[in-house]
């Protein structure tokens, strides 16, 4: 059975992008199916709080 990495190489990327928007746009320009996440920092930007919430939820 193929691994998920082998499948990625064989089928080519279908992408979820988080962060720099240009990366998503350049993929779209190459004809790649991509969804860009309009991301914002969790829990008001507090990384420790976000980690705590991850553990609780």
């Amino acid at each position: 059975m193929k691994t998920k990495l082998e499948e990625l190489l064989q089928n080519g990327p279908v992408v979820i992008s988080l962060g720099v928007r240009e990366f998503a746009e350049s993929l779209q320009d190459q004809g790649v199916e991509v969804v860009h996440v309009d991301w914002s920092p969790p829990a008001g930007g507090d990384a420790e709080m976000a980690e705590l919430l991850d553990k609780l939820l």
Binding site: P13, V14, F23, L27, Q28, V34, V35, W39
Partner: peptide, 25 residues
Amino acid sequence: VGVSKAVSRTLDEALARQPHANLAV
């Protein structure tokens, strides 16, 4: 940007719109 014109605010929302995704950038 993207195949869906709706705004995705989380990875899970994006995955619901792109269930065949195989790579997160």
